[in-house]
Each structure stands twice: as structure tokens, then as C-alpha cells.
């Protein structure tokens, strides 16, 4: 039973990673860049929700919507200001710029809120769901449910709508998509908006789960989610989901059965193992270079 509970906990943490990983993977698929600042966007989402709830006492749904909308805007703005001028200049330059953006956001929030943590309001009551000997906290269950709903909606959006089709086309071949009359700029902006919006949800979940937020929370969350995305095969949404869940479970089992000191090392070790066996990740296509 204990073992299954740990798995459930892991799935819950993992689904939070998955939400963030989806943002990485979508942006990578469409803009072909690692958005190193994605972790910081999540931190911002978390703070916006905190301000809405703790300073202005807004109702929870309003706080969630405002946080999602503002982070989506932030995502679009960073893309337009920092990444767009470098489009086509090689991904390494954009990577460094993204690192700059990540430092920038982190330091803005350090100035605004200082490095000491803020207590995130309790929006999900403490308590357990008990089903036949298994027990999980509300937040654990809610996280899982929210993630699966979000991913489901996203997959529907990508696969069933016209805009989704445009996004897939851009990720397949940007130039060809452009020649077919797809507006690249709009598609990329939209991708950043969706990725960042999902990030805001992840940020809020983080706040509820750990009830303490600081300007550094995005960094490690970002790295882990990025690892999840790579493990699943970067560019693939189901891959990001699978990678996130795997990572969460591995982490949870390591903490409860081995040692919390080594949980990060185990996570990174799994990543390396996966990459050595499948160099393009679990769901990634191993494209053979044409000679």
C-alpha cells in the first residue's frame, strides 16, 4: 500500500513537471529553441496568483485566469522582444538570450519580493481522499486531474482545430508552412502563450503543494521539466507527459526508499540512461541524417 501511495505521490509531482515540460516541448517543436526562461515564467505565474489572492483578495478562479492571462502575455512579449530578433541565427545564440531573460525575470522578482519566501494562500483545503486503504491528499488528486484535463484539451486543440493544424505544420517545416499561407509569427506567439499559460497553472500548483514560493523556484522546476521533455523526446507532447510522470515517480520512490539526498542524482541518472538507450528520447523520432 505504502508503495502504491508513493507512486500516486510521484505521479502527482510528475504531472506538475509534465505541465511545465509541455511548455518546453511545444516551444521547441515550433520555434526550435530551448526556452531556458520557461522555469521563470512559472515562477512569475505563481507570484501573480499570490498577489491576486493575498493582496487583492480576488476569488480563486479570477486569480487563476488573471495569472494565466498575464503569463501568456509575458510569454508573447519575451518572444517578441528577446527571441524574435535572433530567429534564424542559430539556436545557441537564442539559448544564451533565453538564459539572460531567465536571469532578468529572477532578479526583477528578487527586487520586488526579496529572496525570502512568501506563504502561498491555502486555496485547496488540507485533507485526504481515502479509497480502499489508499490515501492521497486533495492537492495530489487535484494536480493529477488538472494535468490530465489540460493535456487532453491541448491534444484536442493541436489535433482537431485549424490553428492546431497550423502549429503542427510549422513544427514540421516552417518554410513550407509559410508558403502555404500560415502566419508564422502568430503561430509562434500562440505557442508561447499556451506554453506560458500552462506554466501558470503549474506555478499555482507548486504554490499549493509546497505553500512557500520564492523567486528561485522556477530554476530547478524548469530544469527538471526540461529533462522530462528531453527524456520523452523533445517536441512530442505525449512524450513530455510520459517523461514528467516517469521523473516524478522516480523521484518519489528514491526519496522514500533510498535517500532524499540522492533524488536529484537518480533523476539525472535516469535521463542519461534513457538517452544512451534511445538517443532521441522515448517518443522522439531518431532522424537519420541524409547523405
Amino acid at each position: 500500500m505504502e508503495f502504491i501511495n508513493q507512486i500516486i505521490n510521484g505521479l502527482s509531482t510528475g504531472s506538475m513537471y509534465a505541465l511545465v515540460a509541455i511548455g518546453y516541448t511545444m516551444v521547441y517543436g515550433i520555434a526550435k529553441m530551448i526556452n531556458f526562461a520557461h522555469g521563470e515564467i512559472i515562477m512569475v505565474g505563481s507570484y501573480i496568483a499570490y498577489v491576486c489572492l493575498a493582496f487583492y483578495g480576488l476569488p480563486i478562479p479570477a486569480a487563476i485566469i488573471i495569472s494565466m492571462a498575464l503569463t501568456a502575455c509575458l510569454g508573447i512579449v519575451t518572444e517578441k522582444v528577446a527571441y524574435k530578433p535572433l530567429r534564424g541565427k542559430g539556436s545557441l545564440d537564442i539559448l544564451i538570450t533565453a538564459i539572460g531573460v531567465s536571469y532578468l525575470l529572477q532578479n526583477i522578482f528578487l527586487l520586488l519580493f526579496s529572496s525570502s519566501g512568501r506563504t502561498f494562500p491555502n486555496i485547496i483545503p488540507a485533507g485526504n481522499v481515502n479509497v480502499g486503504g489508499l490515501s492521497a491528499t486533495y492537492i495530489t488528486v487535484i494536480t493529477l486531474v488538472v494535468t490530465f484535463i489540460c493535456t487532453g484539451l491541448l491534444l484536442l486543440f493541436i489535433n482537431k482545430t485549424k490553428i492546431g493544424k497550423a502549429m503542427r505544420a510549422v513544427s514540421e517545416d516552417r518554410q513550407a508552412a509559410q508558403l502555404m499561407g500560415i502566419n508564422i509569427n502568430t503561430t509562434i506567439s500562440l505557442t508561447f502563450a499556451i506554453g506560458s499559460g500552462l506554466g501558470a497553472i503549474a506555478g499555482i500548483i507548486y504554490g499549493c503543494k509546497f505553500s512557500l514560493i520564492n523567486p528561485y523556484i522556477g530554476a530547478m522546476l524548469g530544469i527538471k521539466a526540461f529533462i522530462a521533455a528531453v527524456m520523452g523526446g523533445i517536441g512530442s507532447v505525449p512524450g513530455a507527459m510520459a517523461g514528467g510522470l516517469m521523473l516524478g515517480v522516480a523521484e518519489s520512490l528514491t526519496i522514500s526508499y533510498i535517500s532524499s539526498d540522492f533524488s536529484d542524482a537518480v533523476v539525472f541518472g535516469i535521463l542519461i540512461f534513457v538517452l544512451l538507450v534511445k538517443p532521441a528520447g522515448l517518443f522522439g523520432k531518431n532522424v537519420r541524417e541524409k547523405v
Binding site: Y28, I34, S91, I223, F226, I227, V230, I234, D261, F262, D264, A265, F268, G269, L271, I272, L275, P279, A280, G281
Partner: peptide
């Protein structure tokens, strides 16, 4: 490319741990 980048980052963190 990016896969190598993340794998080296992972080793960096493993060494640190």
C-alpha cells in the same frame, strides 16, 4: 545538439550531488 547539452548538464548535477 540539445540532447548532448542536457546530458552534460545532468552529469554536472550528478557530480555536484
Amino acid at each position: 545538439g540539445d540532447y548532448l547539452c542536457i546530458a552534460t548538464l545532468a552529469f554536472n548535477e550528478i557530480i555536484r550531488v
